Every structure is written in structure tokens, then in C-alpha cells.
Amino acid sequence: MGFKLLSKLLVYLTASIMAIASPLAFSVDSSGEYPTVSEIPVGEVRLYQIADGVWSHIATQSFDGAVYPSNGLIVRDGDELLLIDTAWGAKNTAALLAEIEKQIGLPVTRAVSTHFHDDRVGGVDVLRAAGVATYASPSTRRLAEVEGNEIPTHSLEGLSSSGDAVRFGPVELFYPGAAHSTDNLIVYVPSASVLYGGCAIYELSRTSAGNVADADLAEWPTSIERIQQHYPEAQFVIPGHGLPGGLDLLKHTTNVVKAHTNRSVVE
């Protein structure tokens, strides 16, 4: 069995187990497998329904001669939608809004960016022009300005110390501490036991640490421990890039980060 097929099978099995364990909360999309990078042309966006009122959005972007996937989250909030992270750029984010209108038909009224990198804030200006209120932590807003990236308009308070959590509509926002970046936030959907790890969490097929220019490698494993301790009931975990899975993604990420750190020390 090929690795790609095995990865998709694991996603399907995880979703099936969740649907059985929580039949009222989960209505997993039966329309197909989780979209992969090879299936999404740059400039297009796919939506994948995880649970009743919960979707991931998947886009792709060219970077350094390669094409990478990027995940975000959409959560229903009454007759409105909360968006977590842009679709990595203005063109993708405009396509995301169009796809949401086509498939869901509810307005996106608020959006949260989970850290300051372009795959999370690139497209904020498109959201703002569409009347979406954009939010991020003060740290993310400051770092985005320093980096020359787009800056969300509103500040999220109460997320300055490791372990801080605040309720934001249908989700809980959690600051686990520094990891992929010093400002990275985690998003949890309690009604569906869905954990969105953003770039602080890796997919299972990833074996290298990737972009760690703004990471705190020493603190990252401790931050992941905080996530595990705060959300032990999480059933569906979405990484910032690639295929979702279960809580095993947290341990896998820790292993990859520690291996990278150990290699760096040896070198």
C-alpha cells in the first residue's frame, strides 16, 4: 500500500471513529477524501466538511520552486461564519470567499490569524475590503508590521502568557507558548472536538522541520505538551499544512522538532 493511500485511509478511519463516538456532533463529509496538494491548482481553494458547521479550507501556493498546501478553518456561528487564517495570499483568499459563498452561503463576518507569517495573514486586506472584521493577538499584529505583512485590524486580548485561553464565538483560542513562531495560536472547536494546530503542528508525513527561522526550538516541545494537557479530548487535529489526523500529530511534531534540534547540535 502506497504512503499517500495509507495517509488518506488514516484520515478516513479517524473521521469514521469520530462519527461513531459522537453521532450528534459529527456529520463528516462523505463526498470524498481530504484534498491534497496535487489536486488543488494554485489560485483555487477546496472546502472539506469535518463536522456539522465545521470545515477546513485548503489552498496551495508556490514557494521556492515548489507547491505547498495550506489549511485553515471555518466555523459556523449562528447565521454567520468565523474564518481562521487566510488562504495564503490575496488571490487565494478572494477564491476562498467565493467558494464559501458557493458552498455554504453564509457571510464571513470575523477572521482570526493564528500567527504573523504570510500563509496566515496574506489576504487580510481582501477580507477587510469584503467587510470582514480581522483579528490577531497584539504580538501577531506587531510582528506582521515588522515583517511588512498585512496586519489584522483588531487585537485579541488575554493571550499574552503561555497557557492563556479565551473564548471567541464558537471557538476557544489558546496560546501554548512559542513553537513554530513566538505568537502562534491554537484554535479548538469544543462542539466538535476539532483542534486546529496551525503551523505549530505537523502532518504525519512530514519528517523535516522546514521553516524554523522564527521558531523557538527549545520551547516548542513544552508548548505541545500544554496543548495535549489542555485538549486531551480532541479527536480531529488539523495541521497548518497537509493531512489531518488525531492527537498523534502532536507527538510526531515533537519528535521531528527534537530530531532537528539534535542534528543542529551535532553539526
Rank of each mutant, 00 (worst) to 15 (best):
F3N: 14
F3D: 09
K4V: 05
K4M: 06
L5P: 07
L6A: 10
V11D: 04
Y12V: 09
Y12C: 13
L13C: 05
L13A: 12
T14F: 14
I17H: 01
A19V: 09
I20D: 03
I20R: 10
I20E: 08
A21D: 11
A21I: 05
S22A: 09
L24Y: 11
A25E: 06
A25C: 10
F26M: 05
F26V: 13
S27R: 05
V28K: 06
D29L: 06
S30K: 02
S31D: 13
G32M: 00
E33C: 13
E33V: 07
Y34T: 09
Y34K: 10
Y34Q: 09
Y34M: 02
P35Q: 15
P35M: 09
T36K: 04
S38Y: 11
E39Y: 13
I40Q: 05
P41L: 09
P41R: 06
V42A: 06
V42Q: 14
G43V: 04
R46C: 09
R46L: 05
L47V: 09
Y48E: 04
Y48P: 06
I50F: 15
A51D: 03
D52A: 06
D52S: 04
W55C: 02
H57P: 01
I58M: 11
T60K: 04
T60Y: 00
T60M: 13
T60V: 10
Q61Y: 05
Q61N: 06
Q61C: 06
S62R: 04
S62C: 13
D64N: 03
D64T: 08
G65R: 09
A66T: 06
A66R: 07
N71G: 06
G72Q: 07
L73F: 03
V75I: 15
R76H: 08
R76T: 09
D77P: 02
D79P: 04
D79I: 14
E80A: 13
L81W: 01
D85F: 00
T86C: 14
A87Q: 14
W88E: 00
G89A: 11
G89R: 09
A90V: 12
K91A: 12
N92V: 10
N92H: 09
N92D: 09
T93A: 06
A94D: 14
A95C: 13
L97A: 03
A98W: 06
A98I: 00
K102P: 13
Q103V: 07
I104T: 08
L106G: 10
L106I: 14
P107I: 15
V108Q: 01
T109A: 05
V112K: 00
V112G: 01
S113P: 03
F116V: 03
F116Y: 15
D119N: 05
R120P: 02
R120H: 13
V121A: 14
G122M: 01
G123F: 00
L127C: 05
L127M: 03
L127K: 04
L127D: 01
R128M: 05
R128C: 00
R128K: 10
A129Y: 06
G131H: 09
V132F: 12
V132Y: 13
V132K: 10
A133Q: 05
T134L: 15
A136I: 15
A136G: 10
S137M: 07
S137A: 11
P138F: 00
P138D: 10
A144H: 02
E145D: 01
V146S: 08
E147D: 04
E147Q: 00
G148V: 06
E150H: 14
E150T: 01
P152V: 04
T153Q: 03
T153N: 00
H154W: 10
H154A: 04
S155W: 15
G158K: 10
S161E: 11
S161Q: 03
S162F: 05
G163N: 08
G163W: 10
D164K: 05
A165D: 14
R167H: 00
G169T: 09
P170M: 01
E172K: 12
L173V: 12
L173T: 04
Y175M: 13
P176E: 01
G177D: 01
A178S: 13
A178T: 12
A178Q: 15
A178M: 04
A178N: 04
H180D: 01
S181W: 01
S181C: 13
T182W: 11
D183Q: 03
D183G: 09
D183S: 03
N184F: 00
N184R: 01
N184P: 05
N184G: 12
L185D: 01
Y188C: 04
V189I: 10
P190N: 02
V194T: 03
V194I: 02
L195M: 15
Y196D: 06
G198F: 01
A200L: 15
Y202G: 11
L204V: 10
L204R: 13
S205T: 06
S205R: 13
R206V: 07
G210S: 08
G210Y: 15
V212G: 10
A213E: 11
A213Q: 14
D214F: 03
D214Y: 06
D214Q: 09
D216S: 08
L217K: 11
A218Y: 10
A218E: 09
P221Y: 10
P221H: 14
P221K: 11
T222A: 09
I227V: 09
Q229W: 12
Q229H: 15
Q229I: 06
Q229F: 11
Y231G: 10
V237N: 03
I238A: 12
I238F: 02
I238W: 13
I238P: 02
G240H: 15
G240A: 12
H241M: 04
H241L: 04
L243K: 04
L243E: 04
L243F: 12
P244S: 11
P244E: 07
G245D: 09
L247W: 05
L247R: 08
L249R: 04
L249I: 01
L250W: 12
K251L: 06
T253W: 08
T254K: 05
N255E: 12
V256Y: 13
V256P: 11
K258T: 08
K258E: 04
K258Q: 05
A259N: 04
H260Y: 04
H260A: 06
T261E: 07
R263A: 07
V265W: 08
V266Y: 13
V266M: 06
E267R: 05
